[in-house]
Amino acid sequence: MVDWPVVAAIVLTIVTASTPLLLAALGEVVAERSGVLNLGVEGMMAIGAVSGFAATHATGSTFAGVIASAIGGMILAVPFAVLVINLSVNQVATGLSLTLFGLGASAMIGDKYVGVPGIKLPQLHIPGLSDIPFIGPVLFGQDGLVYFSVVLTIAIGWFLTRSRGGLVLRAVGDNHDSAHNLGLSVLGVRWAAVLFGGACAGLGGGYLSLGYTPLWTENMTAGRGWIAVALVVFASWRPARVLVGAYLFGAVTILGFHAQGMGLAIPSQFISALPYLATVVVLVIISGNKAMLRANTPACLGKPFVPTR
């Protein structure tokens, strides 16, 4: 017999494990589609986590915390944008140092919050609907950020493929010289994309300290920012696939824990390596097919743009 309450509990943990990955990866999709590779996601998530926790602690409002986490991530993206967009500094090196800086800075800011109990994001409760066994808690009993992350996926998907703004963004990521010649503002588009990416990564971090575990601990992002970066490639830069991938990676992690709990001999290191292995496999598949590689990878990804004239 299937124990439905246990299954529901597992599904709920999968959702909470996947949402931060989804939020951060969506932001990175937008940044990379504009041609900027930001490897600082882990750092921006850490700053988002600590600013969300601090703001909630100070105001008692988780809503203020969520807003603060997005702003925190965005603020950390500013020096990155100045360096790689305006000063054409190497994007990989700058992104790596952003991660190191974000982790360090968040630990310093969060020092006084270690061990302080936090406030958890309130969960939706619709009388009747939320009480339906299994379906109720999974579909109608989540917190607001979970629903927001799904809506955001659809919105970004629509923006990229259907709107003129999205077309301009993709054009800038595909060929910045031609975009510049057409009179599009390459630097402006990239600034907006990087700031949006920072806000999303911040939100993802905020979800960790407000939804996943309402606590602050140093290094609480624990490599999720890197999984988000890998996820973008895994999803070949498509928002809908990011959603699928985030839940897949979340599920693998959670099921791994449960498998260990049930006494299956899977080394935990193997489970935490799985998302990266999956990304390597996807990269091999994509790069083995030139047409796929060309159609999916933003051609100007990682290349600095220096306007002539």
């Binding site: 077309l167 595909d174 060929n175 010289d177 031609s178 933003p298």
Partner: peptide
């Protein structure tokens, strides 16, 4: 050529003719 390879013909033209 000053075209965007990853975009469709219509999208390329739409960019130049807002």
């Amino acid at each position: 050529f000053s075209l965007f390879e990853a975009l469709s013909v219509a999208e390329n033209i739409a960019l130049a003719l807002p």
